[in-house]
Design a protein around this nucleic acid. Structure first.
Lengths: 220, 220
DNA sequence: AGCCCTGTGTAACTTAAGTTACAGACTCCC
DNA sequence: GGGAGTCTGTAACTTAAGTTACACAGGGCT
């Protein structure tokens, strides 16, 4: 059972919920369970069964794939107001997870049962909300496939840096895990960016100095 | 307007349709248009607007990404009974296409208008049908990302050959386009498979001789 | 201060993949 | 049969990416 305060947060973050049949929703929420996760907690792993649908009140979840040699590659990130399509997909198809999920920051989720989730899908607005997330993810994934298959690492790294804003607080290893490569490659490329005056480097800190040059790189 | 015969075919291939409200469906089908495509026809390309939803009566559609240097990479294949999630996604999000689609064989499609498609989604069974396709595609795409990012080409080629059955009639270029690589790599790898006695080679023809060895390769 | 741990720098090397540049083989068609 | 066009084979080379193996720096802790 979730608290009054959490319920308010939920409606604030997921405005679509206020358009869903009140009766259905109240029932579903009465069975929903709030979960608090510390940063770094693994929420699900490949091949685990999946039995609840998470709404995200705060924090974020990184969904990623792992390779046998310990490399990682981020598929997407789920933040508040957003929903996890892996989970939705697993629930609907009754399949096990096919990726890993990790709370990167301290996070609060509201877990809804699979049955209640399916019932809510009967509501047109909610269904459209979930459908639009699905299709957004699908195009993101298609984009990702293309990048991984056809783009060089320097370009992909430049894009990643640009997405992260002017000041970035990440270790080289974290950047590598985002792109599916190894730490040394990132160090090497960052060094070359730094030598070219595009960025300034510090411990777990990158400052973008020449945004337009990075953009050129990622567009070329 | 589609013919009686096509309508029958449609119901045969998409049993879910017979569970949809008859009234809605009749309306929708009365506005649907049959399209015949010759093998090799490009149906849609990246960034084109998308304005109808295809049901596939016969043939197949290969959905793929193109790189700037002319390489290609298949994302998935749509055959009769199946549906194209790129299109569905585009329609729902009103986005342009983000991949290319090509009829590999002579194909017959029934195109339904975007509006009618949305209306049909109101039907629970139809919605569940589309949802399950979406989630199937999402997990396939996630799998693909992983393969492209982490697996060596020999392994990916072995998997591809196994999926295509004992006798394969494809040129090296077609195999390359499937995997997102170049013809020479395929020729080289096939030669090494052939030298190892795993396959027999001919012009546009591959015969699998040692299936279990290929399986070992794709599992290792 | 001394120590440990994590993060970074970097050089030398290996490997996978892609590129270039052909030659030859097979097919189809005139 | 001859020629054009497509498909395959292959060798030499380049490049991107990954691996190995360290050295060192900074921050926190005792």
């Amino acid at each position: 059972m979730i608290s009054e305060k959490q319920s308010e947060e939920l409606f604030g973050l997921y405005p679509v919920l206020s358009k869903v049949d009140r009766e259905l929703l109240t029932q579903a929420l009465s069975r929903a369970i709030p979960v608090t996760l510390k940063a770094g907690t693994v929420i699900f792993e490949e091949l685990q069964p999946c039995n609840a649908f998470p709404f995200i009140l705060s924090g974020n979840i990184r969904v990623y794939k792992q390779s046998v040699n310990g490399r990682e590659l981020s598929l997407y990130n789920v933040t508040s107001g957003d929903a996890c399509v892996v989970t939705a997909g697993c629930l609907l198809g009754d399949d096990p997870y096919n990726a890993c999920g990790l709370a990167e920051k301290d996070s609060v989720l509201v877990m809804m049962t699979a049955d209640d989730f399916e019932t809510l899908l009967g509501s047109r607005v909610f269904r459209e909300f979930i459908f639009s997330l699905f299709s957004k993810r699908i195009s993101e994934l298609m984009q990702l496939v293309e990048e991984v298959a056809f783009q060089k690492l320097d370009k992909r790294l430049a894009s990643l840096l640009l997405r992260r804003g002017r000041y970035i607080r990440m270790s080289h290893q974290e950047l590598a895990d985002e792109l599916g490569t190894v730490r040394e490659m990132i160090t090497r490329l960052l060094k070359s960016f730094s030598d070219a005056g595009l960025i300034a480097l510090g411990r777990e800190r990158i400052e973008i100095l020449d945004e337009s040059a990075l953009k050129d790189m990622h567009e070329s």
